[in-house]
Design a protein around this nucleic acid. Structure first.
Lengths: 341, 341
DNA sequence: CTCCTTAATGGAAACGTTTCCTTAAACCTT
DNA sequence: AAGGTTTAAGGAAACGTTTCCATTAAGGAG
């Protein structure tokens, strides 16, 4: 392995001079610069960032903690985060926690030990103690939470207006004439679930429609959960005429359940999703859903983290993005023709 | 920041002793061990892995280079790789190249500079010069290529038998009575494309059926590419009765095209995919496809990389997994009833 | 009792950089 | 011409560990 020392010898200058030209810091003459570059070339010198990190206390690396990269939502998010990291000369180490707090804590320890320059969390749980602890224990470490928030913890937050999204989705169904609307969501402790449900409640309340208790289900944000709960709900005598699925994955599960029960979408059942992920446009009929600006959010999260480093700033930002309704073909006006009471 | 030095002082032992108990190396007495642990606890000491890496030349980090994590195939693969890395105490830094060789080269430089313990490539291009170069320049760096191979480069390889998969897929269609079979694939320079096409050719040849030139298309492994080319193919007078899509994503695109042209799957058109990704079971009708053991492959790739490090071994392995046909509902016997010539 | 092995610990070099502090030459300013 | 400023470059400490080597005490074998 050739070091800066070898380069110095080859170029007939001191070690510090080599470091200066390689980093473009301090004063260097054109002549020495050339000598150094030539030596670097000749010896095929490669910088050792870990030695540099040792003294600079900067690794150009961020940790990204998510539940599961297999979940297409997080895959899209991760890509957005990684892209802007890369643009600024940073790398991402990927951590899948499966929402397991112990596993998350281990990852955090690891990341800290490795001296990451910051951590991006995109974990849904409102009660995540680990995040609170990191923020308290390492107040100088840039941390941003992406797509969720931890009550009582002062931290950079990137959010969608989940309440608004929930309201919009429900209202869309309401305007199509639906009254028996179900809500299937992920964990009741996830920020997204909570807020989207509030939006659901609010829209219903505004139209003076009572919520049917049995029609609201909190489970998991997965396809399977949509399938299981969809099956349960749709095989009832008094089944809902529309379902607000709090994620596209859940919606996809409901599609499957509906198909099994020979229910046509949207003729017999309207479904609206949330996220506007890749699934929404793959499925048939294409899924009406609430668009979340995932890419912008991911980019922004990373930008804030980097800005915090570069400006050594201590202010915490919270940025909220607005969701939009994208109408495709899984929702339609309630057909009241068949309504013989 | 508290260091090993502080711990040593607190515990009234030497720095080397602290290091020994923390690493469980060399001789230490139970008594000193306790003293050290207490001091660690009291001072809330956290190890600094970058200082350790400096001298051990080990970062417990691997680079994973893929085209795009948004592609569900790579998301699944990445998860598998990360899981086994994590089980062995390693982290993964994620690199999305978009198949851009320049970008890939930059990532490689970065990873090397950061002293990763190895690199896993899952990039499709047969002509990837970067991989060849890394292997030559850093013969001691564990490198494994996952799902592809570079002719002439001696390296650890984890593969599916793509030829066999291509043969199986084509044969399945043939056995259902199809003769006008199209093949839509990704880049003609990707290992998967090449081998799957060979399998396609071979199966057709075995049944003495001539390939229709216009029916074989190499484009991209994406949904869009399936859609565009599907549209082109399916709007012909003499359209194929079956299509072998060399990836599930392509198949999904073809579904969309078929729907637009009012062609029913599988009544009017049989489709078989490749990968058995999440898409296959989401789409309607569920996609018949060739199952690739993605998880096992990802696990195995990481295991080999880790084994290479631990045993300082220099042997290169190539492991090939066998694909299997999973029949769902997108293929069926050719209905020759409507065949008036 | 002496010698040898084993267990336990400490001292110090080493890893490859960056950066602070000097030194010194060159160039202005007055 | 003396003093100040700017440009250029070298020396050496520092970053926080690991590990090699040396030292010492204790225990067993002969």
């Amino acid at each position: 392995m050739t070091t800066i020392k070898d380069v110095a010898r080859e170029a007939n200058v001191s070690i510090s001079t080599v470091s200066r030209v390689l980093n473009g810091s301090g004063y260097t003459s054109e002549e020495t610069r050339q000598k150094v570059y030539q030596a670097v070339e000749k010896l095929n010198f490669k910088r050792n960032m870990i030695a540099a990190a040792m003294i600079k206390k900067q690794t150009s690396t961020f940790g990204l903690i998510i539940p599961d990269i297999k979940n297409i939502f997080y895959a899209d998010l991760t890509r957005a985060v990684e892209d802007t990291a890369n643009q600024h000369g940073f790398n991402i180490v990927l951590c899948n926690t499966d929402n397991n707090l112990t596993k998350e804590a281990e990852y955090i320890d690891f990341l800290i030990a490795k001296g990451v320059d910051g951590i991006i969390f995109s974990t849904p749980e409102v009660k995540d103690k680990n995040i609170k602890q990191v923020v308290e224990e390492y107040p100088d470490l840039p941390v941003v939470i992406l797509g969720s928030k931890i009550p009582g913890v002062k931290i950079n937050e990137i959010l969608v207006d989940n309440f608004e999204g929930g309201y919009m989705a429900t209202n869309h169904l309401l305007e199509l004439g639906h009254k028996k609307i179900a809500f299937i969501s992920g964990s009741a402790d996830s920020y997204a679930s909570i807020e989207r449900y509030k939006g659901f409640q609010s829209a219903l309340a505004d139209k003076k429609i009572k919520i049917i208790e049995d029609f609201v289900i909190f489970d998991k944000f997965y396809i399977d959960s949509g399938y299981k709960n969809g099956l349960k709900l749709l095989s009832r005598q008094d089944r809902p005429t529309a379902i607000f699925a709090a994620s596209d994955a859940i919606a996809v599960g409901i599609y499957k359940a509906a198909r099994e029960l020979n229910l046509k979408i949207p003729e017999d059942l309207s479904i609206i999703g949330f996220d506007d992920s890749q699934f929404a446009d793959i499925v048939f009929p294409p899924l009406t859903t609430i668009h979340t600006p995932i890419i912008e959010m991911g980019n922004r999260a990373m930008e804030i983290a980097i800005k915090t480093i570069k400006e050594k700033s201590h202010v915490k930002e919270t940025i909220v993005f607005y969701p939009t309704l994208v109408e495709r073909e899984s929702t339609r006006k309630l057909d009241e023709g068949g309504c013989h009471s």
